[in-house]
Design a protein around this nucleic acid. Structure first.
Lengths: 241, 241
DNA sequence: CCGTGAAATACTACATGTGAAACTTTACAT
DNA sequence: ATGTAAAGTTTCACATGTAGTATTTCACGG
């Protein structure tokens, strides 16, 4: 999560020489660009020139091209032949569809957890993320949005992970990058953060009660609210995120 | 779905000359290999040598490598660094997980269709696929498995398409390649085909009755049965598909 | 017979150069 | 002013060559 990803062997006194970080330039380029997009340092619609990136990172075009192709498959950038590569932007419709799929998966995961008696494990798992969110939002004067987003993400990730279904986890991870972009877009006011936090608490309370109906409702409401908030913001922005 | 995917301009009488297929070697290589894997001409575990393929297709390693990387992302092949590339094989667990996700998606889609009053549209859409399946299985003496598989696939694809959610469709399409491989594996006896056909009929009957409960049960039963059959065959095969 | 180490082999990742295709700009003519 | 044509620029896809690294093979010594 650093600005410069090239840090490898920090001068750690008397540590037994960490193996050199594998420098797979394609992988590194991919990570750097993904970071930038997820944190909105590269904004939707922005041009991403192969030569430009290659020069900045001091590598040839090959790994940059490969990284961009991978990002294109994931949908984070759009490669328009003979035009260039641009950071993808989400339309209101994209968000609607995205959050429907998200809800389908998370609701299934929640049912699984209750059915398989993994509620306690879940409650334990989200302890850290919830603490992080609280801390990030309770800091006076300013909200640590990146930390909040991380906590938010990990909360929902825990849900899916606990199904133990790795295939589902992969599918969700693919969606998640876009959800993360959305989060970065809408998490701008303290109020939104507090609202999300309250809704998470509601989900937790429902889990504590072991009432499947209540859990489904609380979770669906939360996802739906976030979606509505994003779609609302999107309308103001001329429809593109 | 032809053996040779290079066919471009079939002699279609008095049609206005289709534009020549863009010869994107990476894309073509990808398609050829995917075809081969989906039809089990390249069997799970088989080695896929870059140089080998490159020579056969008369292209350089570059497009072959790129195609393989894409197939690896989709999970159809496995690239083991410094070892080589191999066609992926599914374990019983993989199939279990795969079919859980499949069920989650298709059941949601079915609920959508009933909720949005698209039942008639669905019934119309699956008319063709069902006919194809019947014809493929009713042919005396032998069953046209490729055609049957296509019909089977299109039946389930119709379900998902009718949600109108393109993101969901993408997710499902990614799963579908593996489902298709599974189908190719288990669809070997007339009995299995007939069984699948009967179960489809049951789903259709449930849709006709407009009873959500019945639809869910019929669909879930079908998916579960197919899964069980595959897992059963997998056990006989030493656990790998 | 087994373990050890070195050479041979194979594969990956990358850089670079080339040709082709499409968009952009400019200049010109109507 | 508008439309058109040609030049210029950008970008893409591919081939080829190279270096580095992991695995395998094989020979040798225990």
């Amino acid at each position: 999560m650093s600005d410069s990803p090239r840090v490898v062997n920090r001068p750690a006194p008397e540590s037994p020489l960490l193996p050199l970080e594998q420098h797979d330039l394609t992988e590194q380029t991919y990570q750097v660009l993904k970071e930038r997009i997820l944190h909105r340092q590269l904004k939707p619609g922005a041009r991403v020139s192969v030569d430009d990136i290659a020069q900045q990172l001091r590598v040839s075009r090959t790994p940059v091209t490969a990284a961009l192709k991978r990002l294109a498959i994931e949908g984070l950038v759009e490669i328009i032949p003979r035009r260039g590569t641009f950071v993808s932007s989400l339309t209101a419709r994209d968000v609607e569809e995205l959050f429907v799929v998200r809800a389908v998966i998370e609701l299934y995961a929640a049912r699984c957890i209750l059915r398989d008696g993994k509620t306690d494990e879940f409650l334990r798992r989200i302890d850290g993320p919830m603490a992080k969110m609280r801390q990030a939002s309770e800091t006076d004067e300013y909200t640590d949005y990146p930390a909040f987003m991380e906590g938010d993400r990990d909360f929902h990730l825990a849900l899916v992970d606990l199904t133990g279904n790795s295939r589902l986890a992969v599918v969700y991870a693919e969606l998640n990058v876009h959800i993360q972009v959305s989060r970065a877009h809408y998490l701008n006011t303290v109020e939104d953060a507090m609202q999300a936090l309250r809704e998470h608490e509601a989900v937790i309370a429902a889990f504590r009660s072991r009432d499947p109906q209540a859990v489904e409702e609380a979770l669906e409401l939360h996802i739906s609210n976030v979606k509505d908030r994003i779609v609302e913001l999107l309308s103001g922005h001329g429809g593109r995120l």
